[in-house]
Amino acid sequence: MSQDFGPPLSRRVLAALNYAYLSLVMFVIAGILTMAMTLQYANGELPCPLCLLERVAMLGVCFGIMLNLRRGFSYQNTAFSLLSAIFLLIVSVRQSLLDIYPRPGHEYIGSAIFGIHMPVWSIIIALSLLTAYAIKLAILGGDEYLREAELADFPAISKIASVLSLYVIAICVVDLASVMLQCGLGECHTFNYKLLQ
C-alpha cells in the first residue's frame, strides 16, 4: 500500500501563502473596524446609517474569509467576501456622493484620517479588496493545492487565524450591541444613543 506524503512542497507553499493572505486581509479589516469603534467611543463620533452598513459589509468580507479558514477552501466562501466588497463599494460611493457637496445636515461625518473621510476611505478599502482578490486569483489561482492542504497543516497561521476570527466575532457582537443602543429598533440618528436617553 502506498503511503500518502501529502502535497508537494511548492503546493504547500502556495496553500500557506493563501491562508496567510486571508489572515492578513482579516487583520487589516479588524484594524479598520477597531479604529472606527475607538473613534466612536473615545471621541463620541456616532456612526450614520450608511456608515453602519459599511461596517456590516466589512464584517461580511470577514465572514467569507472565516468560512474559508474554518471549513476549507470553497469558491462559495470567496463569493461571500466578494459580494460584501461590492456592497461596501456601492454604499460608500453613495455616501460620498451624498456628502461630496457640504450643506446643512450632509457634511462628512466624523474625523478625517490622513485628510480623507470615512466614506472615501471605504471606497479605497473596497477597491483594494476587489483588486487584492483579483491579484490573488491571478497569481495563486487554481484550487487543487487548497483542497490538498488545509489550514490545520500550518499550525502558526492556524493559531493566528483563530485569534483573529474570535476577535472579529467579538467586534461584531460589540457592534451589534452598540447599534441596538444607538438606534433601538427604529431609525438611526447620530445625535445620541436612543436607549441611553
Binding site: R70, F80, L83, D153, P155, A161
Partner: peptide, 23 residues
C-alpha cells in the same frame, strides 16, 4: 490539532442562512 480552534460554533448552513438574512 491547532486548526480545530477554528471549528467555532457549528453549522455552516446556519451561518450562511444568517449571512443571507443580514445581507
Amino acid at each position: 490539532e491547532p486548526g480545530a480552534h477554528l471549528r467555532l460554533f457549528g453549522r455552516r448552513s446556519l451561518a450562511i442562512a444568517l449571512f443571507v438574512a443580514c445581507s
